[in-house]
């Protein structure tokens, strides 16, 4: 067996894990944009909150408590964001971007005051901290677990958006927001709900991703840029598009780097530029 086979094989599995994690990170961003027309640049900050909460969590109990805390804090932050952006509903996108970027900078500063500027390590919970052999290469169990959780979340979201009444309302709002309001549906509480759920997901993604990425200043903007890339490649407001784009970007960042390491720096944004140049509204819009 030539040496590149196990390299490509583990990289592909890893791309799946990274891609699904990216899906959980980015799906909230696309939901919020689709429903509210708000480009939430504070999304990465919420991810970082989650990552800090999983750091130094040695047992399953602390893991569970931390996960609940991340979900709650994310949801509350989402509620606060909906209050903060409500007065800007009729303002240009750039104003909302400016506001949420300002909030993102403040969140980063608060986290740095709370947790310091050193890296906070995060480890998988007991039992998931080992590795399993794949074609002679060890692969961490925790990343396989992330694949499992990611698949479940992706299925749940797919079902919610494509098969439920709430999902239909969401899709209708993405297609024509004014029409939904015109036919007398009060979308206010749905909008708040979407921001709450989307923000909670960002924090949960940070919590799940913590043991892979660790918690550190700067991780927020890294994740934000990746999530923006995914959301745009997928087509804004499309959950299926985000899933497809996440898996694609996961593979680019993993298999792409393993096979074309000298081009690593150009792969991600090159793929983004090509996608939008060819499909100006993303893959699935």
């Amino acid at each position: 067996m030539p040496e590149w086979v196990p390299v490509a094989m583990t990289a592909t599995i890893n791309g799946l894990a990274i891609g699904l994690l990216l899906f959980v990170s980015a799906v909230g961003l696309t939901l919020i944009f689709g429903m509210m027309d708000v480009l939430n640049l504070a999304h990465g900050g919420l991810f970082l909150i989650g990552a800090y909460l999983v750091a130094e969590s040695p047992t399953w109990t602390t893991f569970a408590v931390g996960l609940a805390a991340a979900t709650t804090i994310g949801a509350v932050a989402g509620g606060a964001l909906s209050l903060a952006t409500a007065p800007l509903a009729r303002r240009p996108h750039l104003d909302q971007a400016l506001l949420t970027l300002g909030i993102a900078l403040v969140i980063a500063e608060v986290l740095s005051a709370l947790y310091g500027d050193d890296v906070r390590p995060a480890n998988p919970p007991p039992g998931l901290d080992g590795a399993v052999p794949i074609l002679g290469h060890q692969y961490p169990t925790y990343r396989l677990a992330v694949i499992g959780v990611g698949v479940v979340l992706a299925l749940v979201f797919y079902w919610m958006v494509e098969r439920t009444k709430l999902g239909a309302l969401f899709r209708a709002s993405v297609a024509d927001r004014d029409m939904v309001a015109a036919i007398g549906i009060d979308v206010r509480f749905v909008r708040v709900g979407v921001l709450v759920v989307g923000s909670a997901l960002a924090a949960v993604a940070g919590f799940l991703g913590g043991p892979i990425y660790n918690a550190r200043p700067g991780l927020d903007s890294t994740i934000l840029v990746l999530a923006l890339v995914v959301v745009v490649i997928g087509g804004l407001g499309s959950v299926r598009g985000v899933l497809l784009a996440s898996l694609l970007v996961g593979q680019i960042e993993s298999t792409g780097r393993a096979l074309l390491p000298s081009l690593a720096s150009f792969l991600l944004f090159g793929a983004l530029a090509v996608t939008i140049a060819v499909k100006p509204k993303g893959l699935l819009r």
């Binding site: 944009f33 480009l39 996108h93 840029v225 923006l228 890339v229 745009v232 804004l236 150009f266 944004f269 090159g270 983004l272 530029a273 939008i276 140049a277 100006p280 509204k281 993303g282």
Partner: peptide, 17 residues
């Protein structure tokens, strides 16, 4: 050829490159 947020992100990508 693109506009709005897509123009925003496409120019971001070209800038990063």
């Amino acid at each position: 050829r693109s506009s709005g947020i897509f123009f925003l992100i496409l120019t971001l990508a070209i800038g990063e490159i």
